[in-house]
């Protein structure tokens, strides 16, 4: 076909800048959404521990909604839907302040929180009841037994799945391109449409995504080995 592969053609000047800005935006989006996911995931876990059934139902509904609706649709609800419910000044503020980044981060973070809450819960469930009883027998109250004995063990078990959630979150930031967030996939398409170097542009993006994903995967398997405890 006479096509000459020339990776250099997209790695110079403003195109290189676009890739770097895109990568930085992807990482920033991952970081902001990650913090939100952890905070909300922990809150959901704590709320679920309160022995008042309606709160438990609320958390269950939250988890099921976020796990059974496509992430892209959740992003659309936040980006197109929620601002339309807000008063006009709030909408203007959002439009003026790169609202798409903020709303994408909220959508991604809240969705990931549902999975984080589930991971922490299965971590807690996997700790034998005897560990809790044993802590109570020494004289610890509910909070002491949870805080010093159950949670430290549960978190060790939850870390590898949480790192896997981080990987999924990182990959899912690519969906933000659909609402115009200038992250890596979005910038790649820009480079592609300016240079017509389709293959090169996507090769660069693929390499960048893979490099970071492999890093997260390596961290996951390292932590899995590092944190495992002999329990019997």
């Amino acid at each position: 076909m006479g096509y000459v592969f020339d990776i250099g053609s997209v790695l110079t000047g403003k195109y290189l800048d676009w890739f770097l800005i895109g990568l930085a935006t992807t990482l920033a989006l991952t970081a902001v959404a990650w913090c939100l996911a952890m905070a909300m995931g922990i809150i959901l876990t704590l709320v679920r521990m309160i022995p008042f059934p309606p709160l438990g139902w609320f958390v269950a509904l939250y988890v099921e909604y976020h796990r059974n609706v496509p992430l892209l649709v959740q992003i659309f609800v936040w980006y197109f839907g929620v601002p339309s419910l807000l008063p006009r000044p709030a909408r203007q503020w959002i439009n003026a302040h790169h609202g798409e980044f903020l709303l994408a981060a909220i959508a991604l973070g809240l969705a990931a929180a549902a999975y984080v809450a589930e991971d922490i819960r299965s971590g807690i469930r996997s700790i034998p009841k005897a560990q809790y009883e044993s802590a109570r027998s020494i004289g610890f109250g509910y909070l002491g037994a949870m805080g010093y004995v159950v949670l430290p063990q549960a978190l060790r078990i939850a870390v590898p799945p949480l790192i896997n959630q981080t990987l999924l979150l990182f990959k899912n930031t690519s969906l933000a391109m659909a609402i115009g967030v200038g992250e890596l996939t979005y910038r790649t398409r820009e480079v592609e449409s300016y240079t017509f170097k389709t293959f090169e542009a996507f090769a660069v993006a693929t390499a960048l995504y893979l490099a970071i994903s492999f890093g997260i995967m390596a961290l996951g398997s390292w932590s899995g080995q590092r944190l495992r405890l002999e329990t019997r």
């Binding site: 005897a130 560990q131 044993s134 027998s137 405890l229 002999e230 329990t231």
Partner: peptide, 17 residues
Amino acid sequence: LRQRVGFVFQAYNLFPH
């Protein structure tokens, strides 16, 4: 009370962490 009454379990229940 539990601090004053020691309890030893069949399965030891040491804290593995």
